[in-house]
Amino acid sequence: MKRTLPLALAFIFGLIGIAVQIVPALKGFLNTMLDWMAIIGSFALALGVSSLTRHHMTKIRRKHKDMFFSYVTFVTMLFMMIIGLIGYFQPESLYQRLFGNMYNYVRVPLDASMFALLAFFITSAAYRAFRARTWLATVLLVAGVVVMMGRVAFGPFMIFNDITAWLMKVPTTAAMRGLTIGIGLGIVATSIKIVLGIERSYLGGGE
């Protein structure tokens, strides 16, 4: 019951997964299955929220120096949840507008700012990578610099543009394609192992 049935379920649903990919007549059934997966997965959110709560409760209970910030998480989470749920049942209400504003002026700028931090991270990563002194790192450096220049090239530097185009067309495509094919084999092998029950780490592993 604890191990055999889960393995059997993985096998049966694995076969279903294969079948819906090759039999067009199962299209309607596939939609049902996709709904199933969405429904089943949605309940895991309760576990996620409970885990997050436990994480922050521990900080508060231990009087961690950052416990104030754990309260910030709780308060905003509850606030978002309450205005969002009331807003769902009362469309066009103040709650829904507030929910929209929280999304547009809190979530969106935070998201965009985190993304923008990448400008600095990529610069520092480039600096470190380009300091390395192996021939491989030099190749990486040269290709990187040429493409950076190629993307902003003008006038006599247009040659970088041509080299960039060639680098993207031939070596980059070749490398990425070789990788993609290998990755495809890895994905298929891992999937087969799971369906056949050879790989069972996802059940905690062990016997």
Partner: peptide, 27 residues
Amino acid sequence: TDATSQLPFFIAACDYTLIGEELYAAS
């Protein structure tokens, strides 16, 4: 990672990188 678009960053920034299918072979 098997995300070919992120591999360049890991290669540049990390001490060790499992490239593509090495991730799958690891287990």
